[in-house]
Amino acid sequence: MKKNRKAFFFGVMICSAMMLVSGCGYFNISQQERLTPIEDPSASELVKEEVFQFDYSLLEIDDEELLFLFDRFKQTREVEMLGNIEPFEMFQLYMYTQAGEDYETLYYFYPEGSLNVSKEQFIEEGRNEVTTQNNREFMKRFNEVREVIIRTNDESAQIHFTLEEERRDFTFQLNRIGESWFVVPVPLQ
């Protein structure tokens, strides 16, 4: 693994709903890398952009080291365990966790104090019938995604993907705090 690697709640859950599938596999069938300026002309930093195409579900994770770290993270809730993973790996783990409806673990993907609900409320709202149904439907569609565009800079990352059946584009957002990537409070736009 490389280094660098309801109203409100409903919005959070819809963003996460695309992950309901059991299992997870890695990627990298084709990769293109290029540097492009950030769209904000006042920004002086560059954005790294990578395009990844897959022949299997993004919910499949076959990186044993990543799964080992994730299992330890689930047991300990020590955010530092995920400190050296890449943005795409954090996205993939988040979606995997969402698909598995493990809302307690999902809560820890957010920076401490960034959500306007307690962990208990987050879990309760995640498990309500409507959210569960929406999450499962989203995850079924997400399971068909075969291409992502990842844009990163030193402080943030965006993972862009399209739900092909409805031709709807989404962007999943992360921010770096220290050496770790965290999901923003409403990650899916």
Rank of each mutant, 00 (worst) to 15 (best):
K2N: 04
K6M: 14
F10M: 05
F10H: 05
M13C: 09
S16G: 09
A17E: 12
M19L: 06
L20N: 00
V21R: 15
G23H: 01
N28L: 08
I29P: 00
Q32H: 02
R34G: 01
R34L: 13
T36E: 14
P37F: 15
E39I: 02
D40T: 07
A43R: 15
E45Q: 13
Q53C: 04
D55V: 01
E60T: 09
D63G: 00
F70K: 10
F73G: 04
K74S: 07
T76H: 08
T76V: 05
T76R: 11
E80M: 11
E80L: 13
P87G: 03
E89H: 15
E89G: 15
F91L: 06
F91G: 03
Q92W: 04
L93T: 06
Y94M: 05
M95G: 11
M95P: 10
Y96Q: 11
Q98Y: 06
D102Q: 02
Y110C: 04
P111F: 07
E112G: 02
G113A: 04
N116A: 06
E120V: 03
E124N: 08
N128A: 03
Q133Y: 07
N134G: 13
R136Q: 14
F138D: 01
M139V: 07
M139W: 11
K140D: 06
R141M: 12
N143E: 15
E147T: 10
V148A: 05
R151M: 14
R151I: 08
T152K: 15
Q158A: 13
Q158C: 09
I159M: 12
H160P: 00
L163F: 14
E166N: 07
F172K: 11
N175S: 10
E179S: 15
S180M: 08
S180R: 15
W181P: 13
P185S: 04
V186C: 09
